[in-house]
Computed example of a mutant assay.
Amino acid sequence: FWTMSISDFLDEYFETDVIKANFALSGIIGTALGPMSPGTAYVLLHHYMGEVDGSVGAWGYARGGMGAVTKALAASFKASGGSIRTGAEVDHVLIRNGKAKGVVLAGGEEIYGKLVVSNADVKRTFLKLVEEKELPDIFLRRVRNFKIRGSSGKVNIALDSLPEFPALPKDSPVYRADMHFTDSIERMERAYDDWKAGRWSVDPFLDMVIPTTLDPTMAPPGKHFMSCFVQYAPPRIDGRDWTDADRGGFAESVIAQIAQYSPGFRDRIVHMEVRTPREIEAEVGLTEGNIFQGELTFDQLLFNRPVPGYAQYRSPVGGLYMCGSSTHPGGGVMGAPGRNAATEILRDLAKPTLHMSPAHDVI
């Protein structure tokens, strides 16, 4: 199973192309692999782990948008005595005698603490925030070889009204679910071929939701919001950086596909927010725009995530821990890497709870 492609795996259970294409989407989302690539069967399992309200494998909406999740986390953290500073870019980790003592901000301010915990990906943490001399050569080599490849983009669309799809009744419950138009695995594989050639997919795979059908608070009365997750979009175009013209072409490929199935869709567009891997990395610090902080391939899972010998959230630097999605079990809105990291940190501190004082005990 671990080395199977999602295409081969689904062939064992289904005959109809459109059904297989529907399930195959969870085998490629956020992954720089195609549905016929070995290892993508696990990616489907990864997306089906967990549950929502007792429904195993289900996904859910956060009322108010995904920002509501981070707001809830921040509120919980502050309630436990923590403090949060935004707009405070970290230049490097302050290390003395092999132990992390704090961080130095881009402006030169030094903040000290007993521990430093990094939610940045493994490459950003150890290749940009820690000096090479502080790390073993074999660890550095493995970090450099860790695969973090951007493969997806995002298009958020404000709509004047709910789009119409002739194939759906106006009151269809499908409007409240995730929608896509891909009707075969072969079509998805052709989209991946564009990525391999260093281009965005001309006929992309889209995973679309209209959360305002369930949560009207996300748009003014009568208006709607559509979120489109797009595969594939490479981190660089033909070996060069993305340009604004490239971004426009990427967005057009998305709108053109939707318009094929929803006449008049273009006329409903009020505003678009387009995010290629360039914007995703620049705005939220995800290397190459990879949403999982590293490929979910078997060589980078379990005890190999992020690298062999360091799968327990510790690092070669004393007092410097990892808690992001580059660690086990990987990406997704589940909080498991952070919870697991907290467990190991508490074990090292021999403290029974997360409450620590003063506020800068943990950075």
Results as ranks from 00 to 15, higher is better:
Tyr192Pro: 00
Lys123Thr: 02
Ala68Lys: 07
Thr297Ile: 09
Leu320Arg: 03
Leu286Met: 14
Ser7Gly: 07
Val155Glu: 01
Arg96Asp: 12
Gln312His: 08
Pro173Leu: 12
Met334Ser: 10
Val52Met: 04
Phe303Cys: 06
Lys147Tyr: 10
Thr276Tyr: 02
Pro263Lys: 13
Lys99Met: 09
Asp194Ala: 05
Leu159Tyr: 00
Lys123Gln: 09
Val90His: 08
Arg124Ile: 02
Gly87Asn: 15
Leu94Arg: 06
Ala24Thr: 02
Glu295Ile: 01
Ser184Thr: 12
Thr327Cys: 14
Ala167Met: 08
Pro263Met: 08
Leu296Asn: 05
Ala106Phe: 12
Pro352Thr: 15
Gly98Glu: 09
Leu159Glu: 00
Pro38Tyr: 03
Asp244Asn: 12
Leu33Lys: 14
Tyr42Met: 08
Ser151Gly: 11
Val254Pro: 02
Leu162Met: 07
Pro221Tyr: 05
Ala245Trp: 12
Leu168Arg: 04
Glu273Trp: 08
Gly34Lys: 01
Leu206Thr: 10
Trp2Lys: 15
Ser26Asp: 15
Val56Phe: 11
Ser172Lys: 14
Gly198Thr: 06
Cys323Arg: 08
Lys99Trp: 02
Ala167Tyr: 11
Val18Gln: 06
Glu186Leu: 14
Phe139Pro: 04
Ile237Asn: 00
Met334Ile: 15
Pro277Arg: 01
Arg266Lys: 14
Thr70Gln: 10
Pro38Ala: 01
Val43Ser: 03
Leu354Asn: 13
Ala24Asn: 00
Leu206Ala: 04
Ala72Trp: 02
Gly54Glu: 02
Leu135Glu: 09
Tyr321Val: 09
Trp2Met: 10
Val362Thr: 15
Ile185Tyr: 01
Ile95Phe: 07
Asp8Lys: 12
Thr31Val: 11
Gly30Asp: 01
Lys78Asn: 03
Phe77Gln: 03
Ala75Met: 05
Leu162Asp: 01
Gly332Ile: 13
Gly98Pro: 04
Asp244Phe: 13
Asp203Asn: 11
Gln312Gly: 08
Pro136Gln: 04
Glu288Asn: 15
Gly289Trp: 05
Ala75Glu: 13
Thr287Asn: 12
Glu273Asn: 08
Val307Phe: 10
Phe265Met: 03
Thr3Gly: 12
Ser161Ile: 00
Gly319Lys: 14
Gly332Val: 14
Ala100Arg: 02
Ala350Val: 15
Asn290Glu: 14
Glu279Val: 06
Lys170Trp: 01
Gly81Tyr: 07
Asn290Lys: 04
Leu44Gln: 10
Ala68Arg: 08
Val122Met: 08
Leu346His: 07
Thr86Arg: 13
Pro316Arg: 09
Asp53Arg: 15
Gly102Arg: 02
Glu51Thr: 04
Ala282Phe: 04
Met49Ile: 09
Met66Phe: 08
Thr353Gln: 03
Pro166Arg: 05
Ser55Tyr: 11
His224Glu: 00
Ser201Asp: 01
Glu132Leu: 04
Phe298Leu: 13
Ala100Thr: 00
Gln260Tyr: 04
Leu25Val: 12
Asn97Ile: 00
Gly338Val: 10
Glu89Ala: 11
Asp246His: 09
Arg142Ala: 06
Pro220Asp: 04
Lys71His: 10
Arg305Trp: 02
Tyr42Thr: 05
Lys20Tyr: 01
His47Glu: 09
Leu33Tyr: 09
Val104His: 00
Gln312Val: 12
Gly153Tyr: 03
Arg96Tyr: 07
Asn22Trp: 11
Glu131Ser: 12
Leu25His: 11
Thr217Val: 06
Asp183His: 09
Val143Cys: 15
Tyr61Ile: 03
Trp200Asp: 07
Tyr61Ala: 04
Val317Leu: 03
Ala259Asn: 06
Met272Tyr: 01
Phe146Ala: 08
